[in-house]
Design a protein around this nucleic acid. Structure first.
Lengths: 392, 392
DNA sequence: GGTAATTTAGATACAAGCTAAATATATTGC
DNA sequence: GCAATATATTTAGCTTGTATCTAAATTACC
């Protein structure tokens, strides 16, 4: 049996340092007195902790601001600021056809971005990894960030990933890809890669900087090339046994209707109508919506039909998970706004606990935003264990 | 802003005492050396912690066993044992028609049980509370347990309860009942009542002492008077925004089929066929199963139909939550065994991640078992904050 | 411009809890 | 009875915390 780590005095420092760091991170700059109030520690302890954190590189002591704007009495306080440039994180959105990499500082501000496309669907894993690596390096270059200062990489893929960040072997394609990707980036740059399902990352992103800020029970529908849901309950991502929570590809059949009438079909239909990423047909989404606004019965019927399907899916989620809010994101999001009133109106007919329904404002960046957040979560949780590379 | 409790040296003792107590609870009796190995602490600390726990009444020092069966060399070790009689917990199953109370010691062994019925559906809350209180007192009497030594009361009701143990005001009937129940039991006996949804408690019970032991991603379908699901993900109960997670009453409509064909109808149909609690019609469940076994086409058709409905419900859960196992419990459980092969065979057609499906072995006690576990969880989590009443 | 008031910083004394190492105690085996 | 063995207890020292007192730096005021 493994040791249950004994609580030694050092644990106290770690706990208190985490608390202090969390507050400084949230407040941009903090004084000892503020930290005393926030943490409940004495001044002596707060100062000791801050000195510790300065030594580790996580915070820096700021000069006194020469601004007469805030003239306060008494001896000026030492000002401790979060060192947002102590390192960087990468957020990756690895799709079937393209990959996007985003570089962010430790506050999550994106300071570099780059995309790359895969030449074909059946290229060898080595080439795929090369495209991803190139996107990462280009994004770092654009940000002026040293690859050696990347503390973690969050990566979203369109496959189930369990809560330990592993892809099931049964997912043959992604499995091979992943094994190679993770070890390749580790060997090339020494990076730690944290894999997650793309819909789960979308949920993280939406709760962080989307329309679900502060919502603990949140579901994000990521509809585009495929349909997946990222489910957060009590502020935590749900994975299920094999990471397949929210994989609704098969819901079609469950609905008891022919699969040609199900969700996947809905997305296809929508896409064919110009709402999806591969738009271009004569019946474009804008035209359908315009026609509907003008009162065209055929266009209205299409919208009604789509709204009802969406409402049924959301109601099914509401009955099982009871989220406070459901966000529609992904490629279909830009067209989804017009459907909201219809969906919202239908929901009470299908569920006793209808959630608020919104459309994601994050657009294409929904997965990379979540990937950045995922990497930051890891860095923040392990801050005191991670050694910051010395400033070059 | 509230103080984030500062980590003081006392926290160490609390953490280590919890760890030691947890191990002693699991091992029945432990020596200092064993605890050193399990916790990673030094002997001095382990002994100090144990002395502390003895003083608080949670553990007792056992006499040396005069058994030559285990003749060991060296100085005999002090033997610390969990004081399972330091207090008691109550587990309540509060149904629409009846209430059952179970008394258990701190190991969860049920040592007393009693039930009571409500005279009618519309009796005043005061009378309802009286029935519940009487069942509690009778169960305690049967167990020979002093009501003053009850440390917590877990109570399951057939309504949504949020993760703080509160019933939504919109649930008018249960809301009134609960407010009265909680304060009444507090005033009468000083008990702390922990409310939970009955299906959620069924999940706790099933993971504790049912067919889901050790399963972290578990769903329990509680089918009887109504249909509800208790969902555990990563070993935690899911509540959702208002505690309505798993309330599948409305799934009928979502399935896109007439509600007369849905789940509630399934349960009604099953019940009418004698599978439910209100059995008694001429077409009893045993007869249907017997006929089916004899090859009767009509009976076989009924079973097939029910199996397919069950499979669709479970598949819907599998697609959204991806549990490792689904347990069928409640009044229909006794008849459900015969359906398992059919359900299991159908599942792969409806979901890519079919869970293992089993039938609960807990019978009527499924909710009280979970209620006891719920109360024990509370007691164990707050052991060092709870003052044990002095031995009478 | 000196002085009081105010606010923060730093230093000292002490308490809680843990480790480590030396010493004491109780039992078995010969 | 004595060695071997396993456990218990004691003592010194480390880390981290609190509490309290004194020092420093700035503003406000006369």
């Amino acid at each position: 049996m493994p040791h249950a780590a004994a609580a030694t005095p050092q644990l106290l420092r770690r706990v208190n340092a985490q608390a202090v760091l969390r507050h400084i991170r949230g407040a941009d700059v903090a004084t000892g007195t503020e930290l005393m109030a926030l943490t409940g520690l004495t001044r002596a302890s707060v100062i000791a902790v801050c000195e510790d954190l300065i030594g580790r590189g996580w915070i820096v002591e700021q000069d006194q601001p020469a601004d007469p704007a805030s003239p306060r009495k008494g001896r000026p306080a030492r000002r401790f600021a979060f060192n947002r440039g102590a390192g960087f994180v990468l957020g990756l959105d690895i799709g079937a056809a393209t990959t996007t990499a985003a570089v962010a500082d430790l506050r999550g501000t994106v300071i570099g971005r780059s995309s790359g496309s895969f030449r074909a669907a059946d290229i060898p894993a080595q080439e795929r990894i090369g495209v991803v690596d190139l996107a990462c390096c280009e994004a770092l270059e654009a940000a002026g960030a040293d690859p050696g200062r990347v503390l973690a990489v969050g990566a979203g893929i369109a496959a189930p990933v369990d809560r330990d960040g592993n892809v099931l072997v049964t997912q043959r394609f992604w499995s091979l890809f992943d094994v190679g990707l993770r070890s390749a980036l580790k060997e090339l740059h020494g990076w730690t890669v944290l894999l997650e399902n793309d819909a789960n990352l979308a949920a993280l992103g939406e709760r962080w900087r989307g329309s679900g800020v502060g919502v603990d029970d949140l579901v994000v529908l990521l509809a585009g090339e495929r349909l997946g849901a990222g489910v957060m309950e009590s502020g935590r991502l749900l994975h299920g046994r094999g990471g397949a929570a929210g994989e609704m590809g098969y819901l079609d059949m469950v609905e008891g209707v022919g699969s040609s009438d199900g969700i996947a079909a809905l997305v296809r239909q929508w896409s064919a109508a110009g709402g999806g990423p591969s738009a271009g047909g004569p019946a474009s989404a804008p035209r359908v919506f315009a026609d509907a606004a003008a009162g065209d019965p055929a266009a209205l019927a299409i919208l009604d039909r789509i709204s009802e399907r969406m409402a049924r899916v959301i109601a099914s989620i509401a009955s099982l998970i009871n989220p406070e809010q459901v966000v529609i994101g992904g490629a279909v999001a830009e067209s989804a706004g017009a459907l909201l009133p219809g969906i919202t109106a239908l929901l009470p007919r299908f569920t006793a606990t209808p959630p608020r329904v919104t459309v994601s404002p994050l657009g294409d960046a929904i997965v990379t935003a979540g990937a950045v957040r995922h990497a930051l979560d890891y860095v923040e949780a392990n801050a005191l264990e991670l050694a910051l590379p010395a400033r070059g």
